[in-house]
Design a protein around this nucleic acid. Structure first.
Lengths: 114, 114
DNA sequence: GATCTATGTAAGATATTGCTTACATACTCG
DNA sequence: CGAGTATGTAAGCAATATCTTACATAGATC
């Protein structure tokens, strides 16, 4: 999840994600959208996106076609949802998991962070 | 938005966000949750979170109380929603804005990225 | 097979992070 | 006021990111 969030924190990589969101695109086509940047730089961004699970690749003859992986952002989205949901919803969810939610203040319940 | 996503990409900072999500917490109390890390390190994380708009501070005598800023993650959440929504929904949203959605392939519509 | 085209990888320069320890600032309380 | 408490900032260091140019690899095509 760290990796996915880190990957998505970069504006170039977000732009790439938008490009490959609705269909496959070859590495060269993607690089063509970033004239101010060298092709290897884009290739390295593609590697970062692949490694973090945000896109997937497949070979097609000479070329390599990239496309978005929906699941790649799942944990990140879950974190945002967790932050956004109100306290009651989280208490309820915690109860359903038969856990106690994180202590807000002094924290006698020493849970490992993260 | 970059800043917020970058901030949230760090596990320590996410843990801090969870701590201050439901109420105010003093810097020292927060640092107390991270015994493996020096207090200044936590202070620097708090600065990063403040600068990126994810938390806000207020002075209280000696101490400084931090709490979450809901709006801080808005753009990040909007990006995830944009990625997640299906093509049809985006087309519709674009039509309502009287814009054209990003070209998926060859890109004659050269929009500035980002 | 020779050459072109598409793409990744290596090496290296530079900037940025994320810590640490030492120090500065400022409120509090006797 | 002076000691104590809470906290931020500075300096410095090791690790990592993000580019660049040069090179390697491999499928396509004549």
């Amino acid at each position: 999840m760290d990796e996915a969030l880190r990957a998505v924190a970069d504006p170039t990589r977000r732009a790439i994600l938008r490009l490959v969101r609705d269909g496959e695109l070859a590495a060269g086509e993607i690089a063509g959208h970033f004239p101010s940047m060298s092709r290897p730089a884009v290739s390295q961004h593609l590697k970062a996106l692949t490694d973090s699970g945000l896109v997937e690749v497949r070979a097609d003859g000479n070329r390599r076609l990239y496309r978005w992986r929906r699941e790649g952002l799942r944990d990140a989205a879950a974190f945002l949802d967790e932050m956004w949901s109100d306290r009651l919803a989280r208490l309820k969810a915690a109860a359903e998991r038969e856990e106690w939610p994180e202590r807000t203040r002094s924290g006698r319940t020493s849970r490992r962070q993260q």
